[in-house]
Design a protein around this nucleic acid. Sequence first.
DNA 1: AGTGCAAACTAACGCTAGTTAGTTTTTTTG
DNA 2: CAAAAAAACTAACTAGCGTTAGTTTGCACT
Lengths: 215, 215
Amino acid sequence: MTTTPVSFALPTVPLRKGESTAQRILDAAEALFSERGFSGTTLRDVAARVGLRIPSLYNHFASKESLYAAVLERGFGPVLGVLSDFLDEGSESRGDATRVVERVMALLGQRPNLARLVVHETLSGGQRLTPLLRNWIAPIFARAHEMAETGPAARRWDAERIPLVVLAMYHVVVGYFAIAPLYLELNGSNLMTTSALARQTEFLKELVATLFPEE
Amino acid sequence: MTTTPVSFALPTVPLRKGESTAQRILDAAEALFSERGFSGTTLRDVAARVGLRIPSLYNHFASKESLYAAVLERGFGPVLGVLSDFLDEGSESRGDATRVVERVMALLGQRPNLARLVVHETLSGGQRLTPLLRNWIAPIFARAHEMAETGPAARRWDAERIPLVVLAMYHVVVGYFAIAPLYLELNGSNLMTTSALARQTEFLKELVATLFPEE
DNA sequence: AGTGCAAACTAACGCTAGTTAGTTTTTTTG
DNA sequence: CAAAAAAACTAACTAGCGTTAGTTTGCACT
């Protein structure tokens, strides 16, 4: 079922027109999946959004499942790249934590759907994300904990609370994007404007400063 | 093809004599809706879980939509009660914020599905929750902001950041329950044990203490 | 006992989902 | 410019969805 993608290693030169169609399908699917979840999204909606008939989607993706997988792969690659780069370098100072917050906020600010996708996945226990999780996210999470134990957080929080601090930061970052649509509808404030994003980024940096006191 | 991973071996919700069928249906529906969302949940699954045939559900609820609405109403009543009581009393000191954190954690600790339901709703922009939102949640949110502006938070954060602090606290509280299933699957730690919940509650109180400095 | 009614059942409907087959159009390529 | 490949199309299928109609069961009450 879960056809682990035999990579899109198309022979030598990727076809430009075809690839752009695939990209447009991915864009539409990402938007719909992130808003409505996997089962709430229909291929009819995706096709209509791209301006295609449904069967044409099958020229680019083998199934709805594999389309979803492709959305996840394309989306989370860069985010996880940022995180794993950061974690590989290792961080001892608070400045590193501040920097990763800035980069993640910049990334998710441009692609807020990714945050929403990951929230959908966490709610369902990561049933569909699991292959990705096992390979990428789990090690990153583990490394984050390990790092936090030796990093600046350890000076403020005892060991058994470190995971809670990490989780809390994660939720504040991701939840901001998840709630943005509702927040807009509810009181008219748009959390996704550049100024609002900058404000949230500054707030997060101050949060980091508060939670992880400098030596 | 939506491969539902777990096939249910008949009644998961035991037949309790004093409890009405409607309540048992609500229990089953709440569990499924909170895990899979509205469109990911089928009436077949609900019926199987209760140990009924599908049409029997219609003796108690007029439609899938109204079953969902009933789940929401039953679930959020108490939570919103706690919040609105708290907000009506008004709060000037940090102790009040601490107390509301304790009560909300106790409530959601017993009914974690509620947190997950509300996250599903926020992701979809509250399309289905809107009637409830308009009547209950929106005023509460507004009041929380207003209160935070005159409460202890105002001494630490300038006005335009207050909403961000409120949102952050909200996400840390709700996100904890939303991620619990995934967290369990990912590294074996169960966030829903009483000791884990107590630890999170203590952590939240410390967070409140850090974010809302005493006079 | 017998009536009445709520709540369970069986059966089946219409609709929409994802998917496949087969055909035509478009694009690439030698 | 013709052949081949890719990608669009039409049509149709199967399966599962929520829902309805009509029937039977089980229990309360005279």
